[in-house]
Design a protein around this nucleic acid. Structure first.
Lengths: 154, 154
DNA sequence: TATCACTTGAGAGTGACTATCATTAAGGAT
DNA sequence: ATCCTTAATGATAGTCACTCTCAAGTGATA
């Protein structure tokens, strides 16, 4: 994700207005590696700008996604999370217990699709998802974070 | 997923009762490779048993999941889908346009986690997800099926 | 500093589950 | 075959994560 000034510039170029709400959301995403959900960005943002609406957070995130500055990741944890690391390709670790998503920066070259399938499906991206238990949940038997919901397989 | 008789046997062993509703859901899942959602199982089941409730479908699916006879797959298409192919490990193709999920049966050995990460995360499964456009959506520009929702990355 | 289209926030709406509970019905006992 | 117990079901309401609509507010250009 671009830095603050570049984002502002980018928005201006497209005729989008620079509002305090947008800047507030931009700021919270800069260098954020926690894979926040819209809701968690909202909670943080309200500490500085109590009038901000959740709706505006969703809208701003969607704008950044459509500009390619944010990647939405939906890994079955119940909410879409947002990843500002768009520059470096990477993969994700998902904790089955608390739902936390972590990055795995490594050049795990994903396998190519076998020939037989390639004719019927045009691949645009390949993701490798590691599911398991994170360190925090291994040590505490107790879960603290947001949990994985519904039909989680374990 | 086990066959009809084995499922009935398995349920009886655990003291679960064999109801027409459960049998109806079992039958619709046998050999089903369409990765149905609870809703689509419900729609099919109602054709034979119009009194069946959606609630019972969800319950029966959850039972099968907890017995390991069904794998819930949540690939960000807006609904959890269910995969009765629990015996053969495989991966999934997800169409960004219509949301359809297809199986890819191939021994794509997923890469191991790099050493550095392995201490902080205990991996229980690794999935490879190929996202792109399915044949049907390539030919018709028009989409017919259920679409991918919300913050789909494209 | 006036204008106006873009933004915002409030409130209602939607879809996919999930909880609660009175009624119904498996299936072993009689 | 009928009774009885208790699990299972269906109806209804509730929750959560978004999504829509629209009147009111406000950047940015003139």
């Amino acid at each position: 994700m671009k830095d603050m000034n570049e984002l502002v510039e980018m928005f201006r170029e497209r005729g989008y207005r620079i509002t305090p709400q947008r800047q507030c959301v931009f700021k919270l995403l800069q260098g954020n590696t926690s894979h926040p959900s819209a809701e968690s960005i909202y909670r943080e943002a309200r500490k500085e700008m109590s009038s901000l609406s959740l709706q505006t957070v969703y809208r701003t995130l969607a704008e950044l996604v459509s500009l390619g500055e944010l990647i939405p990741v939906d890994l079955g944890t119940g909410t879409v999370r947002f990843d500002p690391s768009v520059e470096v390709p990477h993969h994700h670790l998902v904790c089955r217990s608390c739902g936390k998503v972590s990055d795995l920066f490594a050049d795990l070259r994903p396998p190519d699709m076998p020939e037989g399938y390639a004719q019927d499906f045009e691949v645009s991206s390949t993701e490798i998802v590691f599911r398991g238990i994170c360190k925090a949940c291994m040590t505490d038997g107790e879960d603290l974070g947001e949990r994985e919901h519904r039909f989680s397989s374990k």
